[in-house]
Computed example of a mutant assay.
Amino acid sequence: MVSNASTPDQLVGILRDTVVALVRRDGPDLSARQLGVFLTVYLTDAPHTVRGLAAELNVSKPAITRALDRLGELDLARRKVDPMDRRSVLVQRTLKGTAFLRDMRSIMAEAETQKRDIQIGETAGAEPVRKAG
């Protein structure tokens, strides 16, 4: 019987396959920091501020600012002055960023399915079937 729980090696493999697919496709190529900021903005409840992201990710505010500069260039996130506190800058999601996250989820799901199929094949004693690409 095959367990649905992934091992750490399988999870790292899924991450690797996802990153490789993102690098190979046409579109933005994000650094680890940029991806961390992007995923934090899109996967945790808003509102997000530069100060809050820096605290949550335990990096400097200038590092967050540089990551947001790149995400802004790619239209994956945008900054807006907080109308309630003009000293604060809010980070907002964009339609293009939402589409990028959707694509990333699809890529990860495909990588996870491939890893599971390989695991099932190896458990059954068959030769692993690996998809080229």
Rank of each mutant, 00 (worst) to 15 (best):
T18V: 00
K131F: 11
L101V: 11
R87Q: 05
L76M: 00
Y42Q: 05
Q92A: 10
I118S: 03
V19K: 08
T7M: 10
V2K: 10
V41P: 05
F100G: 03
G97V: 03
L74V: 13
D85Q: 13
S60Q: 06
T18K: 00
E112I: 03
A111N: 02
Y42H: 08
P83T: 02
A32S: 08
V2M: 12
F38T: 12
L22P: 08
I118H: 09
R33T: 14
E122S: 03
K115V: 13
K131V: 10
A21Y: 11
R78V: 02
L11F: 08
V37D: 07
L101M: 04
P47E: 05
L11H: 08
S88P: 05
L95D: 15
V89K: 11
S3G: 09
D69N: 12
R79I: 02
V23L: 15
Q114I: 13
E127N: 15
T98K: 08
D9T: 12
I120W: 02
R51F: 06
L76N: 10
L39T: 13
D117S: 04
V19N: 08
D103I: 00
D17E: 13
S6W: 10
S6R: 14
F100C: 05
V20L: 12
L71D: 01
V81Y: 01
A111C: 01
G13I: 04
D69L: 02
E56R: 14
G97K: 08
K96H: 06
N58D: 15
D9K: 11
P62A: 00
S6K: 12
V37G: 00
E73T: 10
R16E: 09
L39F: 10
R24L: 15
V19C: 11
P62V: 03
L68H: 07
R51S: 04
V59Y: 03
N58T: 10
G13C: 09
V129T: 13
L90D: 04
S106N: 10
T18W: 00
A99G: 05
A21H: 09
R66L: 07
V20E: 11
G121R: 06
L74H: 15
D117Q: 13
T7R: 12
A124R: 10
G133A: 10
L71C: 01
V129G: 09
L101W: 04
T65V: 07
I107P: 01
R130I: 12
V129I: 14
V20R: 14
L90F: 12
A67G: 07
D117K: 10
K80L: 12
N58H: 11
T94A: 00
L35F: 11
R87L: 03
G121M: 06
G72Y: 00
A32R: 04
V50M: 03
N4D: 15
G133N: 01
A55N: 13
Q119F: 15
A132C: 06
S31F: 02
P8D: 11
